[in-house]
Simulated assay, not measured.
Amino acid sequence: MRDDQVERIKLLSEEIADDMISTAAVAIDTTVETKVGRGDKAFLYGIVKNQAGVIATLQRVLDVKSGAIPPISATQATQEKYEQQLIKKAEEAAAKLKQRLS
């Protein structure tokens, strides 16, 4: 993985974390006294859960890259392919979340 990709992942993680905090704050302020309020709160917490999953996936890629955890694959080529797949999935999930919040 190139250094510019690592930096992109770090920035993406920060943006998602900012969105997650904002979404959680809205969820906390949502009332549960009505059926609609309970539904809204559950929906928002679902988004927060998905955002946390995306951040965890990105962090796992960064940890493998930095050597904090051992790579999944035996060879460098298969490890890079695995990392690229994780990045692609995380970017797709982040794009879906941004679209849902827009």
Results as ranks from 00 to 15, higher is better:
residue 11 L to Q: 15
residue 17 A to D: 09
residue 86 L to C: 15
residue 1 M to W: 02
residue 89 K to N: 06
residue 84 Q to K: 13
residue 69 I to C: 02
residue 29 D to Q: 14
residue 31 T to V: 03
residue 21 I to N: 15
residue 7 E to H: 01
residue 13 S to K: 14
residue 61 V to Q: 05
residue 29 D to S: 15
residue 99 Q to D: 06
residue 81 K to Y: 12
residue 27 A to S: 01
residue 26 V to E: 12
residue 64 V to M: 02
residue 74 A to N: 11
residue 33 E to N: 10
residue 28 I to P: 08
residue 92 E to T: 11
residue 14 E to H: 08
residue 50 N to E: 13
residue 40 D to T: 10
residue 25 A to R: 03
residue 68 A to I: 00
residue 25 A to W: 04
residue 9 I to N: 07
residue 20 M to T: 00
residue 92 E to G: 02
residue 12 L to E: 14
residue 41 K to T: 05
residue 49 K to D: 14
residue 6 V to K: 04
residue 81 K to E: 15
residue 95 A to E: 08
residue 95 A to K: 12
residue 95 A to F: 05
residue 46 G to Y: 07
residue 97 L to H: 02
residue 11 L to R: 13
residue 77 A to E: 08
residue 85 Q to C: 11
residue 83 E to R: 02
residue 40 D to W: 00
residue 101 L to P: 05
residue 73 S to C: 12
residue 99 Q to E: 10
residue 69 I to Q: 06
residue 57 T to M: 13
residue 63 D to H: 07
residue 17 A to Y: 05
residue 38 R to N: 01
residue 80 E to D: 13
residue 97 L to V: 09
residue 63 D to A: 08
residue 22 S to D: 13
residue 70 P to K: 11
residue 3 D to I: 04
residue 96 K to Q: 12
residue 68 A to M: 02
residue 52 A to T: 00
residue 78 T to C: 01
residue 55 I to L: 07
residue 97 L to M: 12
residue 49 K to F: 01
residue 38 R to A: 06
residue 54 V to K: 04
residue 32 V to G: 14
residue 40 D to I: 03
